[in-house]
């Protein structure tokens, strides 16, 4: 009762997903503050030894549901198991990755348990709340902090009356840290015998394979765009790294596309797509008017260019004079160091 539960997702290779280990790390910090335990839930098949990837992150208990009907993931079967465990254990907080699976089962569980769920949190903090109207005060709630309204506001959400307080968090948002290599917890096997009905197994998986998603530059709030100055397709990988860390997409100038550094569907400008992200990072782009036509309404623009007089700097909020190859790795490093 009252512990913190983390739903641990499995990768295709049956390893614990990074996002879940990040959540275990976060859960441990919150649990220490609240003086409660961290419990993990793993659901799948062929899971022997999986606890070795969980305990070092500070889990006190791991609930393992291992059954052939639970792998690969289907939201029906996983939701059924999760609802059963959470009903029985009555945690105060339950955390899920804001992944395809986490956002598939999370809402079903919140709906069944009639509790609040906050998607895509960027920060989780413990704090108190005073409801002046109802003259009630609450201690140690989970502040679920997330951007809303297309990233234009930051909201702090609370669930004062219902438990568990459920939140999802994207991969890379929280830090993953081994708590103690020797940390040992307790394994509790959860039997699904007699639990799963036909309706929970109604969705049949016919085939699955790895396939990168289609690019969605227009829908992205952060765009890292590269130009001819990036120099090579290899250097362009740095842009993908930065975009992935910031949760953004990669765009390109026409010169970069023409040089084969990036595919055509990423071209931004008069003959490409028009974007208005919250943040546009122009890397090695001179700022020709045809390019600017597609991006000059971005809310914030950062330019990285070796030429201090590059025209793009006239519309940039921050103009960094330097080489793309040097600056981007630093941005990644210092973002990781300072993000919460």
């Amino acid at each position: 009762m009252n512990n913190i539960f983390i739903y641990c997702e499995l990768t295709e290779e049956l390893r614990i997903a990074d996002v879940s280990q990040e959540l275990l790390t976060k859960g441990r910090t919150l649990a220490n503050e609240l003086g409660v335990k961290v419990e993990a839930i793993v659901i799948g098949h062929g899971l022997s030894g999986i606890e070795k990837e969980i305990f070092p992150y500070g889990a006190d208990v791991v609930h393992i549901a291992d059954d052939k009907n639970l792998s690969p993931f289907t939201s029906g079967a996983h939701a059924k198991v999760l609802i059963a465990i959470l009903r029985q254990e009555e945690p105060q907080i339950a955390l899920f990755g804001a992944t395809a699976n986490g956002r598939d089962v999370g809402p079903r569980i919140a709906s069944a348990l009639k509790c609040g769920l906050t998607a895509d949190c960027t920060s989780l903090i413990i704090g108190d709340h005073e409801d002046k109207k109802a003259k009630k005060s609450y201690k140690n709630l989970l502040y679920q902090i997330r951007p809303a309204f297309g990233g234009n506001i930051i909201a702090t959400i609370i669930n004062p009356e219902t438990k568990p307080q459920i939140a999802t968090v994207r991969e890379g948002v929280m830090k993953k840290e081994v708590y103690d290599k020797q940390y040992k917890g307790e394994i509790k096997n959860f039997s699904v015998e007699g639990l799963l009905d036909d309706i929970d197994l109604a969705v049949k998986i016919i085939e699955r394979h790895i396939e990168p998603p289609k690019v969605n530059i227009k829908g992205s709030q952060i765009i890292v765009a590269g130009g001819y100055g990036v120099g090579s397709p290899e250097n362009f990988k740095l842009l993908y790294d930065l975009a992935s860390v910031l949760g953004g997409e990669v765009g390109a100038s026409r010169a970069a596309v023409d040089s084969g550094f990036a595919p055509h569907e990423r071209q931004i400008g008069q003959t490409g797509i028009t974007v208005r992200p919250k943040l546009y990072i122009a890397c090695g782009i001179s700022g020709a008017v045809q390019h600017r036509a597609g991006m000059d309404e971005s809310s914030q623009i950062i330019s990285i260019n070796i030429d201090e007089a590059a025209p793009i700097n006239n519309i940039a909020d921050f103009a960094i004079t330097g080489r793309v190859e040097d600056v981007i790795p630093k941005m990644i490093k210092y973002y990781k160091k300072n993000s919460k």
Binding site: G116, Y143, A155, T156, I157, I158, S299, E308, N313, A319
Partner: peptide, 25 residues
């Protein structure tokens, strides 16, 4: 609704005034 909005903070966009920086750490 179990979820309540406790506070809202606006994301402040500064006026366009370009800042020039070097590439030091």
């Amino acid at each position: 609704s179990p979820t309540k909005v406790k506070t809202i903070e606006n994301v402040v966009f500064q006026a366009k005034e370009s800042k020039s920086l070097g590439d030091s750490n």
